[in-house]
Each structure stands twice: as structure tokens, then as C-alpha cells.
Design a protein around this nucleic acid. Structure first.
Lengths: 364, 364
DNA sequence: ATGAAAGCGCTAACAT
DNA sequence: ATGTTAGCGCTTTCAT
């Protein structure tokens, strides 16, 4: 039953036409509704379709019309709930407009991204929504001139020749950092993935801006942990092992957030008593974590909606100038961000002074 | 740059043939390597391809050859790491065999599944790996006769006319339940999704079998929480609110596991002191949960490998009898399963006896 | 309103 | 080894 060639012996439009006693064009017109057909023939065609169980071959139609009514959605990591949310939403709205979407997961590998992008293009998709693994699309240079209408999301913000949509990362990081500063933190480590991504650069910049405004410009501590949970954990764990460890960690990606939680657990630090944690993005699991992790929420639905809106316009052959859309994030203050344990530097200073004191006395 | 019709003005095989001064067939033969071509022409063709930046149109080739070298992977919930792991693995091994895979997420909706399945079929995929939303494929009856070679994973085990691959769910649940029984639990609630799925039915059966073998056949408590985290939470929370609440919860799906954790948290029960928890599948977040959740691990990689292996054979036109493959799970005992607080029933009984005693004395 | 026929870009069968 | 040609199943002129 299932070891058959695909569509083997499946009826074609000619079979339908023959059975209905009409021309293939008429069948096509009935089915697509592009031209009006007499009620009688209409009925005949529909009957034949039903009798034969005819299903149009979308491949053939696509080849003829030079469009597939399909968009590609390319994300670097399907495991990241931020991307999952976006993908689900795009599929929903695209589906409502009768566009099929094919999802491609690159596993944060630019090589894989290139390979799957090529496969996508060879299949003649009409549009592309992509969160590129790298900001700079140079790695895919040979593909670029053949790319269909594309919008870049999350990463590569502002790239010329594309509509781009992203969270307002600079502002989000600024607000996150402000929140920690207002709680009294001065030693705030930023755990990010890699400086090469525009979204990460923006987050770093927002963090530094907040620090500078608070007169702590020199105290920025940017820790780069890569895209993985484990590499992030290792990076921040090292930072937390230092004598002058930060009193707060601001993890600015989803895997970094989990990595930071792991590091704090591994070192058996109390959160938020020993160290505060502010994360980025959200997992359902956070709600059962104690403390419930404070985090930055990106407007994933809005990003998806806007991305579809833009691609949709291009599919309709709009020649409007390229847009670059920033959408605001939300800061969700929960339980993992509290004032620092008492100013750590002051405490160290006090201890040192006391030591000198004792020493002095002993000498005296 | 990006507002162009897909492949607009892209060179075709005829352009290449013209430029190289050869026949289109020769170009095709050079590129596909299906027939040998003289070294000179070969060079000419390759040069023309490079000069023009020619990329074959896979759509046209697919139409002509009546095969797309594409398989569909259909899963009910891309958010579930069990499926994510399978998808990633299949894409990897299929890619190695030069098959593209298109991923479809149904969000546990049979309607959506039908719609996207139809879209997939119209695009003439060569094979299908599907974890169906419903065990009984009757909902898709009209599609069935036109399905390409398909293998069912996770659900619909043993369905005639398909190769099927699944974890040994009965055994897994049996072992999980045994583990709890050995710890001394007698009141074990099973939190499952829905009885309509073969995998769930198997898990329920395994649980009941273990109970029966331990002479507790009458104490089975099966709680159905649906596919969502919230619905699962609500269902098990109600059970945990009862005076005779279970001393252990065995959640047998991924969302049920999270739901159970949530319920335990919500009721402020201590785990494993008040109630033990055994889960199914795994999330990276579990490692940072206290207690670290004991769980059943499905062999997702093996399932993926086996599924590809089977579909791969069918693609090669094997007519071997359909196989039904069960793969063993692993029980990972961590921190959330401990002996019960002291036998609850005994305690209740003791209290009641004492009360009667007092009462009696007062009367006396 | 309907039919006949050309052709989307490729591959395979048939020539040579 | 290479060229010629006939389609794959549709849509879309161009007739009528």
C-alpha cells in the first residue's frame, strides 16, 4: 500500500478533461477560478474531479506559472523557543493567505545554511524569511543575486537590499541593565554569544550605554559564550569563579540564559542572594524554576507578523523602499533580580583595611 | 535587489547548451553524471555553467523524473524536544543521502495535519515520515491511497500498510512503574495525554501490568491531561488535591512532565518528600531543576535512524514486508523519585484509630 | 464561454 | 559520445 511511486497512476488534468468531455483549460479554469465557466461544464468537471479523486499537481503548476506560492523560513536553531514562536506564527499567517511555508533549521551552521538555502532556491520558492546564522551574508555571495524577495529577521538588521525586522535590542539591553543598576548592582557581567551578530552587538551596546550613563562605563564585563548552552555555561562559570565575581549576570540570549542558570547551580551560588540573574527570551520551564527568572521578552508574534506583512507586499510586487523595523521588548521582573548582597567591593575593602590594621597592630 | 521574481531571467539549461555549443542533453549528462561525456565538452559545459552562474531548476527536473528527492517529516509538536531530536537526526541522515527534507509541524491539530499533508502530496514528495496526531489515520482517508512510501513513528504503531517505528512504550512504562513500586509506592498516578494514541495506550498498559504484577491491580489511577502543559497541570493538580493523593506521579509525555512539575510547585508540595515524580523525555532545563527529574529516555536517534533506513529502502523500491520496530528506552533515575513519606494509608489509619480511642475515652 | 496548442525547464528515449 | 525530440502536468495565450 505504501510502497508505491509517488502519484503513480494518479489522474491528471487530462483524465478529468476527458471524463468531463471538456478541454483541459476548462478544468483548470474551474479549479483555479481564474476565468468563468458555464454552470453545466462546471458541474461536469466537478463530478469528474470527485469521481477520479483528482488532485492538481502543484509542481507542474508552479513550473508553468513560475511561482510556487511557497515561502522559506530559515532559522539558526529550531530548539530556541524564540524562533519556534516566530515560525509558528509565520506559518499561521502565511497559511491564511494560502502560502505554504517550508521550514529550515541550520543548527547555527553557516555551511548548512548555505546548502539548504541552495536547495530552497532550486525549488523556486517565492519568498524567504531568514534569521541568518551570520550577519554578513557574504558567505552566501553566489546565492544573493538569485534570492527571491527576502526579509531578514532578528539578525542582519538594516542590511541594504532587504527588509529587516528585529527587536529593539539596544533599548532592551539598556532597560535590562538599568533595572540591575537601579537595584544597586555595579558589577554586572553580560553573557552574550558572539560579537559578529548585529542583534548581539546592539545588546552589548545597550548594556554599555546604561553603564556609561550610570558612570560605570569602565566596569563593563562582556563574556562571550558562543551559541551553545554548554559553552555559555563554561564561559560564565569562569567569570563567577573570580574573586571579584559580578553581583549580577545579564544573559542576552536564550541558550546563554540556561547556561547562566547552570553555572550558578554548578557553583552552588544562591540566586538572587549571591548573584542576580537577568535572562533573555523565555521557556515554560522558567516558571517552575526557583527563583523564577527575570527576563527580557522579545515580541516574537509582532516580529512574525511584520515579517509576513513585508514579504507579502513584495510578493505582490511592491517596489517600496526597503524597511527596517524595530519592535520593543518587555522587561519581566520576576524573582531572580534583587539588590546585591551588600556592596561587595566595599566589603572587600573593609576586610583588607581590617587585615592591615591587625597586621599593623601585630607589628606595633 | 530583493524585489525580483524568483529566478527571473535566470539562465536555463538551453542557455548553457547554447553558450557551450552542445546539446541540452549533454549539459544534463555532465551535471547529473548519468551518462559519460567527452572531456572536451565536459570542460565547455562546466565553463558555461560557471560563466552564467547556472543553477538547475529542481522543480522542472522533479516534474520530468517524477520524483523530487524530498521527503516530508510531519510531527505533531515541534516544541517537544523528543520530536526536535528526531527531526534533526532525520534531516542529517537524509541530507547525507542527498535527500532534502521538509518539516511540517501540526501543533497537535489533525485538521492542520490534513491540510499540510495535502500540500506536501501536491508537491510530490517521494516519502513521508510521520508521527501522526491521531493513531487512526481514518481522518485522512482520502489521502491514504495517494500517500508515497511512508513510515509512521512514535504513534500508530503496527498500522497495516506502513513501516512503523516506536519506542518500546509498554516496557518503558512497566520499568518506570516498577521503579516506583520498588521504592515502596503503592499509590501511583499515571498522567497521560489521551487514550487514543497507541503509544499512550502502551504506556498505560505497561503501568497497569507492573501494578498487577505487584498485586496492586486495583489501584491504577490514570489521569488524562491532553496534549498541553496547562491542561496536564490542571488534571494532575486536581488529583494531588485529593485527601488520598498519590505518593508518586508518573507523567508519560513531555508536556505532562512539565505539567506535573508545575502542579507540584503550585500546591507547594515537596518533591520527592511529599510526592515522587517520574517523567518522560527530557529537557535541558531539567538539569537545573531541583530535584533533578527522574525520567524515561526514548531512543530518539535510533528511532530516526531506523525510520530513515526503512524509508530509504522503500525509495529504492524495496517490496519487503512492512516492518514494525520497537526500540528500548532508558530509565534515568535522578533525584525526584524517593520512597514514599511513610505509608500514607497506614498513617491515616493510625490517626483514625487514635481518634476513636480518644473519643472512646471521652465517652467513657 | 470554450477549445487547441504552445511551452515552463528539465530528462530520457531514440537516433546517429 | 552526442544531438534531436518528446514529453512530465499544468496554465495561458490565441483562436473561435
Amino acid at each position: 500500500m505504501s510502497s508505491r511511486t509517488p502519484r503513480d497512476g494518479a489522474p491528471t488534468i487530462r483524465d478529468v478533461a476527458a471524463r468531463a468531455g471538456v478541454a483541459t483549460a476548462t478544468v483548470s479554469n474551474v479549479l483555479t477560478g481564474r476565468r468563468s465557466v458555464g454552470a453545466d461544464k462546471q458541474r461536469l468537471v466537478l463530478e469528474a474531479v470527485a469521481a477520479l479523486g483528482y488532485r492538481p499537481n502543484h509542481l507542474a503548476a508552479s513550473l508553468r506559472r513560475q511561482q510556487t506560492r511557497t515561502i522559506g523560513i530559515v532559522v539558526p536553531d529550531i530548539t530556541n523557543p524564540f524562533f519556534t514562536a516566530i515560525v509558528r506564527r509565520i506559518e499561521e499567517v502565511a497559511g491564511a493567505a494560502d502560502y505554504e511555508s517550508v521550514l529550515v533549521d541550520c543548527n547555527e551552521s553557516t555551511v548548512r545554511e548555505g546548502a539548504r538555502l541552495r536547495a530552497l532556491l532550486a525549488r523556486m520558492i517565492d519568498g524567504l524569511i531568514v534569521a541568518p546564522t551570520e550577519d554578513d551574508l557574504a558567505a552566501h555571495a553566489p546565492l544573493l543575486p538569485r534570492l527571491p524577495s527576502s526579509v531578514l529577521i532578528d539578525r542582519g538588521f538594516g542590511t541594504a537590499g532587504f527588509d529587516t525586522v528585529a527587536a529593539d535590542n539596544n533599548d532592551a539591553a539598556w532597560r535590562g541593565c538599568r533595572h540591575l543598576l537601579e537595584l544597586g548592582h555595579r558589577d554586572i557581567a553580560l553573557l552574550a554569544s558572539a560579537r559578529e551578530l548585529s542583534n548581539i552587538r546592539d545588546r552589548i551596546a545597550g548594556y554599555q550605554r546604561a553603564l556609561a550613563e550610570a558612570g560605570c562605563g569602565g566596569r563593563a564585563r562582556v563574556v562571550l559564550g558562543g551559541h551553545g548552552v554548554e559553552s555559555s555555561r563554561a564561559a560564565i562559570e569562569q567569570e563567577l569563579r573570580r574573586a571579584d565575581r559580578p553581583t549580577a549576570v545579564f544573559a542576552v540570549t536564550y541558550p546563554a540564559t540556561l547556561g547562566a542558570v547552570k553555572a550558578i547551580r554548578a557553583l552552588d551560588l544562591a540566586c538572587p542572594d549571591d548573584v542576580s540573574l537577568l535572562g533573555f527570551d523565555e521557556s515554560d520551564w522558567m516558571t517552575v524554576l526557583r527563583p523564577y527568572v527575570s527576563t527580557i521578552l522579545q515580541p516574537s508574534e509582532l516580529i512574525a507578523d511584520r515579517a509576513w506583512q513585508l514579504i507579502s507586499a513584495r510578493l505582490a510586487r511592491s517596489a517600496a523602499p526597503f524597511e527596517h523595523v524595530r519592535l520593543p521588548c518587555m522587561l519581566a521582573v520576576r524573582e531572580s533580580t534583587k539588590p546585591p548582597p551588600a556592596d561587595a567591593a566595599a566589603r572587600r575593602h573593609a576586610r583588607r583595611t581590617e587585615a592591615r590594621h591587625i597586621k599593623g597592630r601585630m607589628i606595633a
